[in-house]
Computed example of a mutant assay.
Amino acid sequence: MKFLLALCSILLIATASHAGDLSVSVRDAAGRPVKDAVVTVHPASGVPRGPIRFSWPLRMTQQDIQFDPYVLVVPVGGTVSFPNLDRVRHQVYSFSRGNRFEIELFGRDQTRTHTFASVGIAALGCNIHDQMLAYIRVVDTPWAAKTGTNGDVTLSAVPAGGATLRVWHPRLAGRGNEGSRAITVTSSAGRQTFTGDFSARASVR
């Protein structure tokens, strides 16, 4: 038993020593920071088995006739709550392939939920208020987050070695509003800069 515990400790230490923090800076063609870009990393060694959990709440609020947040990152299999804080009713829907759903009319201080079973995008709209628009990015890796107002994001403890870095944003020009590249993650802190054309028109389709 003591040998097994010692072996587990050695393996944990070895794993930690071969992981590093990866900072990613997302910029548009003019060099300006891009907010709400979803950055994911898929190590060549694969992702851990089991459910993925993030530190932020899986919640898409309706308030002031808007969705909040504009972009939400959700693990595949995650259940998102949709609280209505407005005085009017909303009817939330998505026509996105693989993540099509509809929540019938519900009113103030009511909450509905939906579980996202497919990796991809759910572009959200409201059947009552056309100006409402938001996006849920469903991912299958624990190394995922979105950029802040400075266009930067840091993913912690990414396994060292080859990996695929992907950046998604509703206005990123290109197939699926996504760009990708092969990278090498080192055991020390690393940094990547992604520059793209963010002039595409966001859509609820």
Score class of each variant (00 low, 15 high):
92 V>F: 07
170 P>H: 04
60 M>P: 03
43 P>V: 06
37 A>D: 07
161 G>S: 08
111 T>S: 10
59 R>E: 14
149 T>C: 02
53 R>H: 15
135 Y>K: 02
96 S>A: 13
136 I>Q: 02
10 I>W: 10
198 F>C: 01
118 S>I: 00
71 V>C: 05
29 A>M: 12
47 V>D: 02
62 Q>A: 12
84 N>R: 01
185 V>L: 12
126 C>A: 09
204 V>F: 11
45 S>G: 10
196 G>C: 04
38 V>S: 07
16 A>I: 02
23 S>P: 01
46 G>I: 04
176 G>H: 01
21 D>C: 13
11 L>S: 12
56 W>V: 02
170 P>C: 03
135 Y>P: 00
7 L>G: 05
61 T>I: 15
100 R>D: 06
202 A>C: 00
188 S>A: 13
96 S>F: 08
43 P>Q: 05
11 L>K: 03
49 R>W: 03
45 S>H: 02
34 V>D: 08
119 V>T: 12
7 L>K: 11
168 W>G: 03
32 R>L: 12
127 N>G: 15
47 V>Y: 04
78 G>N: 12
147 T>C: 06
178 E>S: 11
106 F>C: 10
65 I>E: 12
192 Q>Y: 14
1 M>I: 11
146 K>M: 06
112 R>H: 10
36 D>A: 11
99 N>W: 00
79 T>P: 12
58 L>H: 07
202 A>I: 02
198 F>Q: 01
89 R>I: 10
54 F>H: 04
105 L>P: 08
196 G>M: 07
76 V>G: 04
107 G>N: 04
23 S>Q: 15
50 G>N: 07
3 F>L: 05
94 S>M: 10
149 T>L: 13
172 L>F: 00
158 V>Q: 00
159 P>S: 02
188 S>I: 08
59 R>M: 07
192 Q>S: 12
107 G>C: 06
58 L>M: 13
19 A>S: 15
164 T>Y: 04
202 A>D: 02
201 R>M: 09
115 T>L: 00
101 F>M: 09
27 R>F: 10
86 D>V: 05
75 P>G: 01
149 T>N: 14
106 F>R: 09
47 V>E: 03
40 T>R: 07
180 S>E: 09
148 G>H: 00
37 A>F: 05
156 S>R: 13
187 S>F: 13
80 V>A: 07
11 L>W: 09
40 T>E: 03
200 A>T: 08
87 R>G: 15
87 R>Y: 13
111 T>P: 03
140 D>S: 11
172 L>K: 00
48 P>L: 10
149 T>H: 12
192 Q>R: 14
55 S>E: 10
